[in-house]
Every structure is written in structure tokens, then in C-alpha cells.
């Protein structure tokens, strides 16, 4: 059954603040092979004008992926996650994320379309400080493959 298009525009409650850890940034940077000192060396980051080490561009997937649980497990929406394929992904920054940041995620469904037997779901996660300073917008398009292939 196609996803209910009336879920377009739905916004989910904000997550608990995520504490961006220095070691988590180092671990993530190491995992993607990003050796630049800005990700690892506090002194180098401070020389470049940051409070602490800087996260690589795709780091916020950790937060947005976890927050998307709210959508993919929403019983009313009823997505079959075993049929989900990652279609598009985008990160749009206001400023880099640095260790010590606290970030709250608000997830929304921007669009649901159904074509060719598949559902196309566009989700948006707004990452902001608890005080409301916007930091990065994460847009993820998912394809839910239909059963008629």
C-alpha cells in the first residue's frame, strides 16, 4: 500500500540534545580516513579560530540517522524499512560543528510521492543548538521499493 501522502508536512518532536564529543569526532574522522589536523588536534583547531576540533562534513548523519527512527518506525506511517533504499543525501551548513556543541534535531517529512510502484519520501532534519541557533540542515530522500518489481 502506498504511503499516506497526508503525512507531508508532519514535524516530529525535538530529540534530546546530542553532545558532540571530541573523541567521537576523532573516531568518525579516522573511520573515513580524514587525517586533517582540524579533526584531531585541538591546538590546530584553535589556531584556525575554533573552540575545539571540527567535525567532517558528513558527521551529522550520526544525529539525523538516529532521529529518522521517529519517522521510519512511526506506526501510523507504516514504512517497511526492509525495502528502504537511500536515494539522496544533502548537508547544508550555517557553520561547522565543533566538539562541545550540543545539538537538538527536529525531523520533518517534506514530501511523499508515489510513482512507478515505489514511494519517495523526503525527510529534513534541522540541527540547532538548544538555544535555537541553526547549525546544519540535513535532507534525506528515501525510496521505499514497491512489491510489484
Amino acid at each position: 500500500m502506498p504511503l499516506d501522502q497526508s503525512f507531508t508536512g508532519r514535524t516530529y518532536p525535538p530529540t534530546e540534545p546530542y553532545q558532540v564529543g571530541r573523541e567521537k569526532i576523532r573516531e568518525f574522522a579516522t573511520a573515513i580516513g580524514a587525517a586533517d589536523a582540524l579533526h584531531h588536534d585541538v591546538e590546530a583547531a584553535q589556531k584556525a579560530g575554533y573552540r575545539d576540533v571540527v567535525a567532517p562534513p558528513t558527521f551529522p548523519i550520526i544525529l539525523s540517522f538516529a532521529a529518522m527512527e521517529q519517522i521510519v518506525t512511526d506506526p501510523e506511517l507504516g514504512m517497511d524499512y526492509t525495502r528502504v533504499v537511500h536515494g539522496d543525501q544533502r548537508f547544508s551548513y550555517r557553520r561547522p560543528i565543533v566538539a562541545g556543541d550540543e545539538l537538538v534535531v527536529v525531523s520533518s517529512i517534506d514530501d511523499i510521492t508515489h510513482r512507478g510502484g515505489h514511494d519517495f519520501l523526503t525527510t529534513r532534519a534541522e540541527l540547532a543548538t538548544p538555544a535555537g541557533e541553526p547549525v546544519v540542515t540535513v535532507v534525506c530522500k528515501l525510496v521505499v521499493r514497491g512489491h510489484g518489481e
Binding site: 573515513i32 586533517d36 582540524l38 567532517p56 562534513p57 537511500h86 548537508f91
Partner: peptide, 28 residues
């Protein structure tokens, strides 16, 4: 997302600074 992370590394490699990316988007 691993491939996308490598795309980020490629660009920061060409640019020469790890904090230069303002926007990154891909289709898999």
C-alpha cells in the same frame, strides 16, 4: 554515506582545508 564521506575528503583535499564545505549533496 561512506562513499559520500569520501566525496567530502576529495573536495577538502582539492581545496586544502578541512572546514571549507558549506553544502554537500549526492544521489546514490
Amino acid at each position: 554515506m561512506y562513499t559520500m564521506a569520501l566525496a567530502g575528503r576529495a573536495v577538502t583535499g582539492w581545496v586544502g582545508s578541512a572546514d571549507a564545505v558549506l553544502d554537500i549533496g549526492v544521489r546514490f
